[in-house]
Design a protein around this nucleic acid. Structure first.
Length: 254
DNA sequence: ATGGCGCGCGCAGCGCGA
């Protein structure tokens, strides 16, 4: 079973890339973020023709998340229960014998921004919800664009980024709080090459120069981590014309 | 070198992302 996450930065623009990637990689489950479209525009028919069911929570211009699956899914939650939020950032489903949570974590902009206050409140609400969820369902996967680089190994220039957004102690502490629920970073369960990122700025030739951040993650409960055979970033779609600035992250489960 | 790219919105140029 192959599960994956991809911030597509507009599903309208990226649909051809998504369809090509589904055909080539054949994931069982794909979590998408930054749809930037309303639900009425969601490409249900195109994805069905490709063999995928979809559940989605979209909004105009910003945010929006979806989960695609070959197998039937049942909806668990749209948003974080008990956390009122206009921004469509969370979708949880049950598929096969597992729960899949797709998250588009707030960016935060900068540490002195109101958006950072929102980011930290959102992270706290997510963590509190998942603390209960992993008790209810010990086979849980949290996938998405976390907008957090957990470690200096996840940053192309750790000194330049030190204390900056995505790399601050507060954000890294919040990531650790998710790990403290028992979740494991699938990517770090395996020996990995250095300088693996999931996002590269569109500017400055960042992709060509491999200057990026690893901010898209797959976290697994121990029961799922025990079934995880591999985890990798697929850089190929980032090389295409008009790419998303993020690349898919994939985990292979037994 | 603090701007550089790409997206949505909407038809100029701005807000936002990370």
């Amino acid at each position: 079973m192959k599960i994956a996450t991809w911030n597509v930065n507009s599903l309208k623009v990226r649909l051809p890339h998504v369809l090509d990637w589904l055909a080539q990689e054949s994931p069982d489950v794909l979590c998408l973020q930054e749809l930037k479209m309303e639900d009425k525009a969601f490409p249900v028919a195109e994805l069905a023709a490709a063999g995928y069911q979809a559940l989605f929570s979209g909004q105009k211009t910003y945010n929006g998340v979806a989960i695609l699956s070959k197998q039937p899914m049942s909806l668990v939650s749209v948003g974080i229960p008990g956390f009122a939020d206009e921004q469509k950032r969370v979708l949880a489903v049950d598929v096969a014998d597992m729960r899949v949570v797709c998250g588009y974590f707030p960016n935060g902009q900068s540490l002195d921004s109101d958006k950072f206050v929102y980011k930290m409140a959102w992270l706290e609400a997510l963590t509190a919800w998942l603390r209960v969820s992993v008790q209810e369902q010990p086979r849980l996967a949290l996938l998405g664009d976390f907008n957090i680089a957990p470690d200096d190994r996840d940053v192309h220039d750790p000194e330049a980024w030190r204390g900056q957004i995505h790399c601050s102690e507060a954000e890294r502490g919040a990531f650790q709080a998710l790990l403290d629920l028992g979740l494991l970073d699938a990517f770090r369960q395996f020996e990995q090459p250095e300088k693996i990122w999931s996002w590269w700025d569109y500017r400055m030739g960042a992709f060509r120069r491999n200057k990026g951040l690893r901010i898209d993650h797959i976290l697994l409960t121990p029961a799922l981590a025990a079934r995880c055979q591999a985890c990798w970033v697929d850089k190929e779609p980032r090389k295409l014309e008009r790419p998303s600035d993020h690349a898919p992250v994939v985990a292979e489960l037994q």
